[in-house]
């Protein structure tokens, strides 16, 4: 569903990614782990078009998208829930969710009716968001904002969802909740590329995993396979 082939990208003259290749099969959860500064977030940004790759290809459902603008890639079915959540603070929770479905809703009127069923689905997954649906998103707690960011990405009914550091800055209890959510997404058949600092938890939910190191994929394999790899053990799973 998502194939990245020899991706090079960076900021200014410094190249952060030096040939990243990975694949996310339809209906699978793939984890991308690695040390800080290995290039995980840059990889995500280069996939979703927030950062234009210098070289290499990004295939979404077989179609090359690496030269497209981020908004166009999003409309083609890639939902990127970015690092730091980036909810629209001044807008209400519900408006945030509706905007998640922007690409497939009428622009002026009737968008509420059209989105009602999907909205109900997200509220069922995150009842807290329904309680706070008319509250400004900026007033939510970190955990709630993360739920909103995931819900907003779900509203797009994406072919592939990118989830960048969903547990960042959250209390341990909430982190557990986030991973429960990811498990439910997996059960629902969402195709997911997950970047996580909690490598152990990430490997528990993933079908396949890549370990990044200094801008390239160092090791890849099934979680069971990685868990036996001494390098992974030493570096990330301690």
């Amino acid at each position: 569903m998502l194939t990245i082939d020899n991706l090079h990208a960076g900021y200014g003259t410094s190249e952060v990614l030096v040939g990243v290749s990975l694949e996310v099969k339809a209906g699978s959860v793939v984890a991308l782990i690695g040390a800080n500064g290995a290039g995980k977030t840059t990889t995500m940004r280069a996939i979703s078009g927030m950062l234009r790759p210098n070289e290499g290809r990004v295939l979404l459902d077989g179609k090359p998208v690496q030269q497209f603008d981020a908004s166009r890639i999003a409309r083609l079915g890639l939902a990127h829930s970015p690092e730091g959540r980036k909810v629209f603070g001044p807008l209400t929770v519900e408006d945030n969710l509706l905007l998640g479905a922007f690409g497939r809703l009428p622009r002026f009127f009737g968008f509420r009716t059209r989105a009602a069923a999907d909205l109900a689905g997200v509220y069922e997954l995150f009842p807290r968001l329904q309680e706070r649906r008319l509250q400004a998103a900026g007033t939510l707690s970190g955990g709630e904002q993360q739920m909103l960011a995931i819900g907003r990405a779900l509203m797009a009914k994406p072919k592939v969802m990118l989830l960048d550091e969903p547990s960042m800055g959250l209390a341990p209890v909430i982190v557990q909740e986030v991973f429960n959510t990811i498990r439910r997404l997996k059960e629902a058949g969402i195709t997911l590329l997950l970047v996580e600092q909690f490598a152990k938890s990430a490997l528990e939910v993933a079908d396949y995993a890549y370990v990044m190191d200094r801008g390239r994929i160092a090791i890849e394999g099934t979680p069971a396979h990685l868990a036996e790899d001494e390098r992974v053990l030493a570096a990330y799973l301690g």
């Binding site: 078009g49 999003a74 629209f88 907003r152 797009a156």
Partner: peptide, 13 residues
């Protein structure tokens, strides 16, 4: 207005 990058990720040009 709130966050241009995040808006782009929603498919908003």
């Amino acid at each position: 207005s709130a966050d241009r990058d995040a808006a782009q990720l929603m498919g908003i040009s």
